[in-house]
Design a binder for these strands. Sequence first.
RNA 1: GCGCAGGUGGCGGAAUUGGUAGACGCGCUGGAUUUAGGUUCCAGUGGGGUAACCUGUGGGGGUUCGAGUCCCCCCCUGCGCACCA
Length: 852
Amino acid sequence: MQKEYDPRAIETAAQNYWEESASFKAVEDPSREKFYCLSMFPYPSGRLHMGHVRNYTIGDVIARYQRMLGKNVLQPMGWDAFGLPAENAAIKHGIPPSQWTKSNVEYMKAQLKQLGFGYDWDRELATCDPDYYKWEQWLFTRLMEKGIAYRATATVNWDPVDQTVLANEQVIDGRGWRSGAPVEKREIEQWFVRITDYAQELLDAIDGLDGWPEQVRTMQRNWIGRSEGVYMEFGIEGSDEKLGIYTTRPDTVMGVTYVAVAAEHPLAKQAAKGDPDLDAFIEECRQGGISEAEIETMEKKGHALGISALHPITGEPVPIFAANFVLMGYGTGAVMAVPAHDQRDWEFADKYGVPKKQVIFSVDDSPCGIAEAAYVEKGLLRDSGPFDGLSSDLAFDAIADWLSERGRGQKRVNFRLRDWGVSRQRYWGCPIPVVHTGDGGIRPETDLPVRLPEDVVVDGSGSPLKKMPSFSDLANGEIRETDTFDTFFESSWYYARFCSSDCDTAMLDERARYWLPVDQYVGGIEHAVLHLLYARYFHKLMRDEGLVDCDEPFSHLLTQGMVVAETYYREGSDGRKHWFNPADVDVERDEKGRLVRSVLREDGEPVTFGGIEKMSKSKNNGVDPQALTDRYGADTVRLYTMFTSPPDQSLEWNDEGVEGASRFLKRLWTLALKKGEALRGAGDLVDLGDSEQAARRELHAALKKALFDYERQQFNTVVSGCMTMVNALYKLGDSPAGLAVLREGLSIVLRLLGPIAPHVTHHLWRELMFGDDILGSDWPQVDEGALKQDSIEYVVQVNGKVRGKVQVPADAANDAIEQAALANDNVRRFIGDASVRKIVVVPRKLVNIVAR
RNA sequence: GCGCAGGUGGCGGAAUUGGUAGACGCGCUGGAUUUAGGUUCCAGUGGGGUAACCUGUGGGGGUUCGAGUCCCCCCCUGCGCACCA
């Protein structure tokens, strides 16, 4: 009797084998085709969650697949170790962020190893290591010298009680998450890098990223947001100053009935001096956070300044409003408003009684209905003085030229993309390597790295660095910068450092030229713009330093979906929802399998289904991968996550589905070992009977599909193909021919499944004496001969509906196929008295008879 | 508010890209094995209908011999929005 499938034993053995054989150590070898496969490195939050497991399984499957194809594969892993949660943990538990982070790294690394991911651990890095961040500090000093890094004011969320800057995440309903105090906007000096200098290149290069999902390319294009418009200057009544604005619709300028400026605009501040109401309004605008989603969804409010702007063409005065939706930091801090032709302006004008002046009319004279809503289409100009009768497109040029000739404006290309603010007023990050000299100047630090002190007390009231003279106070009255970098700074170049992680003389060395670009990058769709755009930018900065010689960091991108699960709750007497973990809930179903009731196992009382949500602590619907791995083994967890959804869609967790994955591996185990002895004596693939030939045909058809699915990264159907093969192999008899097909089939299934369930396939490969190491085997190939068929079944449709099936010799001509279709009794019944108008034959598939 | 996705049985999903809708798995139903539970194995399973057949891919319209797939309008859900990572 053969052993039962015991994942624990075989998984440990396989992992030890890989470690002893250094199976995943990557060595540069210019004679071989390289493949750099990278999954987004984790933030060391404590334990792996299901999102990590999914991400890293997808990456590992791709890495192992490419290796099976014969490529020289690099797959490294590291830690995105700086960030806010470490400071929060420090406040909560009194542990220094470094200590908390390092112990999390240790635990999570053991978890990754237990899941059998084939990483080259020799290249491991953590962004909080001075050997790592030294080099981004160095690059930043280069950017300062080049003028790419600069200082400017920027708006932050300010908690007036805790006296600290808050991240958007820490602002809940306009209040600080700890203090509960209403958050205010505050302007402070920060470091920026000129990503806008690279906006055009970042935009143009998207066209070449054909290994990226179209969705992500579109999002990046829209984020960069190139527009062609006109910059123009309004006069200000009773002043020599000008008010600059940018518009993409200069054709509507004759319809401007007011101008809106940010509440913090100097004009607004000036006007508020004699106007307590306006002053109160400006104060009100200071309330609330800085996130665009918040600003764009809040009620649009404004307040007249009592002064007028002078129209750049007519010279007529229009009122200036301060408005809460215009932000000082973006563009000029002022916008022209055309209520008749912009919906937001229309609503604002309606609310504050500003007139709407229609200047664009439909080409065919159909009504534009500006009484109900703005008319935003292009059209013909009227009531537009010298521009009457022009189309919107012609008016664009005419108005731009008119303004340009008089020095009041000109055409301008504008980007929605803003320069990257990299300063953070936080402790657990990379120190910005800058010194404030005594005379108010600034110089880059020359002695790198600037080390972050790790023996600190974090209490939640601002950065501890500000309270550490030993860090900030230098000789000669100089003061060290206490802001740290945005953690996106570290994550923008780690992919490159993996190539040269032990290099202590430069940021990167020649090994980066061998491995880069990353051939396959895998990570969550939530990074579609920010991280992936910053990394593209950073790559170009490194290129311009001569550190890398390609233009883009990631040639192929796979964005995986979220892991979601059911939620259940009960409402307490105070109206608060109490969430229960789905593992503690029993569901009752009717005879058709429909869910009728769910109860808490503990007390048998009903709980309410709260929908399917992303796994999270707050909804208590997380599944701990550790518990699952302990129970089922890594292979089952990996197989389940690959099988249950395509990688780029969300994965809905289902405990019974895990059982199914485990059951399949047991079936494979049993199939392989039950006949293990007999298989060694299996004959060659000769003298196959009809059933063996049919089984082989099924096997190779499934293989063909699986190879196609591997190539397009649709791993869920690779797994179902393997299941289909195993089902077919179970039906084979014990004849020499049957055993021969079984042996062939097992060797195919094991290799196809190898990247997905590496431990059990490693074990069975050796057990069946196919070889010592499945990693070194050849990738399976389709035997086209096995797919040949003497006759083909055609579906016969009459007027598009299936009415019969006919067997036709594989080499039959269309005439013969048509005759066979027309001869079918049921087909004739449906044609009846109608006359056949047309017959469509789709080769090897279908006949459609059109009869009317 | 803006940008991007997605919507197919009770559930996850498949459909080689305009050609038999529902592969594979879960669940459910029936049966076999088992003292029993579990495991394992066999069969069935979109809905309606005894059947022939009818019907069915979020809703409505269109193109086509043929539409889940292409076009137009609408509804719903998710993700991102620059200081979460």
